[in-house]
């Protein structure tokens, strides 16, 4: 049994992939994010919508276990993030979540191919070169596979970062402003790609954005309000 604001581990249950209970976060005496109760079912494509400073990134950090919420709890794949020791949290993130950040965070010393290979090695314990080549081709970077991140345009870098998140075949793909640097055509292409791969692998998508160009593609939306006083 769980109280309204608590969650218990239930790995075997066929429940939501992500479940928040009474979730909010306070920083420097200010509530920077307040969601309350929320669920994301497996295979769903959800949009996290809100103006700048509404706590989208804070929520993503909490979902991915990088930040412990001030109030409430969140479970991913049946495990309560904040209840896990750091090593288990790292392992859950590695097994379950693929991340695309607003800043690309590609490793500058590695080529696009090697960035994907490193992510695959860390998440899956092996490297599938054919799958990597296929993914790079799907994001339209086949001609830039050997390029270093600094040699890529912002848009190319964004596509490479998305390819890295998708190559690990994670159950949950979390993207923070993935299309902010892309033109209309590439933004649409990226969202198509994310939907395709998510559908093909059964992955769940959680995309945080204030990009109105892609908002209409999502039926499942979570609106975050502007910050409120604690």
């Amino acid at each position: 049994m769980s109280s309204p604001d608590t969650l218990t581990n239930s790995k075997t249950a066929q429940g939501p992939l992500v479940e928040a209970r009474g979730l909010s976060h306070v920083r420097d005496g200010r509530t920077v994010m307040a969601i309350g109760d929320w669920q994301l079912q497996p295979g769903a494509h959800a949009l996290l919508l809100g103006p700048s400073g509404s706590g989208k990134t804070t929520f993503i950090n909490i979902v991915t276990g990088l930040l412990t919420p001030s109030h409430g709890a969140i479970s991913v794949a049946g495990e309560v993030m904040s209840a896990l020791p750091p090593a288990s949290r790292d392992a859950l993130r590695r097994r379950t979540i693929g991340l695309v950040f607003q800043t690309l965070r590609l490793i500058p010393a590695l080529s696009v191919t090697d960035n994907l290979a490193l992510a695959q090695q860390l998440a899956l314990g092996h490297v599938d070169r054919a799958a990597i080549a296929g993914m790079i081709d799907r994001v339209g970077l086949a001609h830039r596979a050997a390029a270093r991140p600094r040699q890529l345009s912002q848009g190319e870098g964004q596509r490479a970062a998305i390819a890295r998140a998708l190559i690990t075949r994670s159950r949950l793909v979390v993207a923070d402003e993935p299309t902010s640097a892309l033109d209309d055509a590439n933004a649409a292409r990226m969202i198509d790609l994310m939907f395709d791969v998510a559908d093909a692998t059964g992955a769940t998508l959680l995309v945080a954005t204030h990009d109105g160009r892609i908002a209409h593609r999502f039926a499942n939306r979570l609106n975050l309000m502007a910050p409120v006083a604690a």
Binding site: A87, R93, L99, R164
Partner: peptide, 16 residues
């Protein structure tokens, strides 16, 4: 530092 943090995010352990 950002790279290291990203490596941790994509699954590298502290020991790694």
């Amino acid at each position: 530092e950002g790279d290291m943090a990203m490596l941790r995010v994509i699954g590298a352990s502290r020991a790694a």
